[in-house]
Nucleic acid binder design. Structure first.
Length: 465
RNA sequence: GGCGGCGUAGCCAAGUGGCAAGGCGAGGGACUGCAAAUCCCUUAUUCCCCGGUUCGAAUCCGGGCGCCGCCUCCA
């Protein structure tokens, strides 16, 4: 099964054909809880990973944890605790949030602090090769030593230099040079190095970890579009300057989550913590919200959008749980099979085209609609069940629609059955007041009744977590 | 200013050369004792605007307008 992905580097679709896919996704800096915008790449690329697996490929998925950084140090100062404590706390919270978001754990979650020795080695080699230089215990990468600098972001060196927004640092030979190693200031976390005690710069960790765990070139490097420059540009410069081989083949970048059109960011104060959003709308509504928009486009966060996603998810579950309660009987007409399989093809075709999850979910919804019509037209339960099974199967890699219908305990279930039986009798006797009272009281208890031509069915509401 | 991207119904949104997916919402109808759910019909002769290419364009080309991201830490 082919899969074309739009690479930022080549600016066109590229075929991903490897049987073993090595992918690297930029992870969090653990100085605070992640906000819902941070969650976008985690959800989207997790879905991509699962889809690749469902195609029978092996996926090695690496996502770093930046546990040494200015923001962590600042936070530690504010709280008067060691930076390592802040990092440990938010690393743990990050893993909890992944779970809440329904995101599978990466194959590897390397921490920057575990890679300091390897980063030092890496930086030494860059210095030897003439791509980096030492100034007062700091080490900088020399952008001028890598002629291809700018190829990812499409930036031209001369124009960057002309830009007034680049801070002038006396120590740098060139304002565009970036720090590979920072000399420790008093009270900061520090590690020994040939240039004195200090800590690694942010742009280096991803390179060293990816090279160590995946080797180069690896298949996919992904992250938010705000990382294209300078972060990913700098990664490419370091890695390729040293190895003289391509770093990553395909570069994927997700669009930003916005709020009323503006990027969601901690610094703008317009953010919501991921866990609070999940708490309010449920895991699947959040995933559905993200996956019904092309991952490369910006997406606007709002209560209305999340509520809509929640309703849409509930609609699909209504269908699934209802369908799965039908008896296993009857025939699946040829015409209906054909319709289902053409929608299945459409689903895969959409995903193969730059992982168009929104189009694919559209196909899923079409399956639901087709099944409703089939049933309405008097189709056998077997066909409806087949449609439900197909939805389950296709949605699995997206991390959607896998929740089983909530059931009550044995006795409770029988008691509900008894109430339904009594109510049916009341309805027959036209005692609708009492019949409606049973329905209303059950609804208050979270049991929703539905009268269908073939009898009354029930579901427990609020199943999605 | 440079680079990248976006502009499709009331709202969200897929589609990138051959009759405009899907979701949410709204209105009408069927079913029902009622309710819910479901089904049917209606809600874009048209895809920001203006030109061009083509038998044919939302889709390609040129020019506008508007919005966003990056150029500084940032998913």
């Amino acid at each position: 099964m082919g899969l074309q992905l739009y690479s930022t580097l080549s600016r066109r679709l590229e075929e991903l054909s490897s049987d073993t896919v090595r992918m690297y996704v930029c992870g969090p800096t653990v100085y605070d809880l992640i906000h819902i915008g941070n969650a976008r790449p985690f959800i989207v690329f997790d879905a991509l990973r699962r889809y690749l697996k469902s195609q029978g490929r092996e996926v090695i998925y690496v996502q770093n944890i930046t546990d040494v950084d200015d923001k962590i140090i600042n936070r530690a100062r504010e709280e008067g605790v060691p930076a390592s404590e802040i990092a440990a706390r938010y690393t743990e919270e990050y893993f909890r949030d992944l779970e809440r978001l329904g995101v599978n754990r990466p194959t590897h979650s390397p921490k920057a602090t575990e890679y300091v020795a390897k980063m030092v080695e890496f930086i030494e080699k860059l210095i030897e090769k003439g791509h980096a230089y030492v100034v007062d215990g700091d080490v900088y990468f020399s952008v001028a030593s890598f002629p291809e600098y700018g190829k990812l972001s499409g930036k031209v060196l001369e124009e960057l230099k002309a830009g007034a927004r680049i801070a002038v640092d006396e120590k740098k030979r060139d304002p565009l040079d970036f720090a590979l190693w920072k000399a420790a200031k008093p009270g900061e976390p520090k590690w020994p190095s040939p240039w004195g005690e200090g800590r690694p710069g942010w742009h280096t960790e991803c390179v060293v970890m990816a090279m160590d765990l995946l080797g180069v070139p690896f298949d996919i490097h992904a992250g938010g579009s705000d990382l294209i420059f300078p972060h990913h540009e700098n990664e490419i410069a370091q890695a390729e300057a040293l190895t003289e081989k391509p770093f990553a083949r395909i570069w994927l970048h997700n669009g930003m989550l916005t709020v009323r059109g503006e990027k969601m960011a901690k610094s703008l104060g317009n953010f919501a913590y991921a866990r609070d959003v999940v708490e309010r709308y449920g895991t699947e509504a959040v995933r559905y919200f993200y996956l019904t928009r092309a991952y490369r486009k910006p997406l606007d966060f709002s209560d209305a959008a999340l509520s809509e996603a929640k309703r849409a998810v509930e609609g699909v579950y209504d269908f699934l749980w209802e369908a799965e309660s039908l008896p296993e009987e009857g025939e699946i007409p040829e015409a209906f099979s054909v319709e289902l399989s053409s929608l299945e093809d459409k689903f895969h075709a959409r995903l193969s085209d730059d992982f168009d999850t929104a189009g694919a979910i559209g196909a899923l919804q079409e399956i639901v609609g087709a099944a409703h019509r089939f049933r309405q037209a008097g189709g056998d339960p077997a066909g409806v069940r087949a449609a439900a099974a197909l939805v389950r199967k296709l949605a699995e890699p997206l991390g959607l629609f896998q929740v089983e219908r909530p059931r009550a305990e044995g006795l409770t279930e029988e008691l509900i059955g008894l109430l339904i039986e009594l109510r049916a009798e009341l309805r027959k006797q036209k005692d609708f007041a009492l019949a409606d009272r049973i329905r209303a009281r059950l609804a208050e208890l979270g049991v929703e009744l539905r009268d269908t031509p073939t009898g009354t069915t029930w579901t427990i509401k609020g199943g999605d977590g």
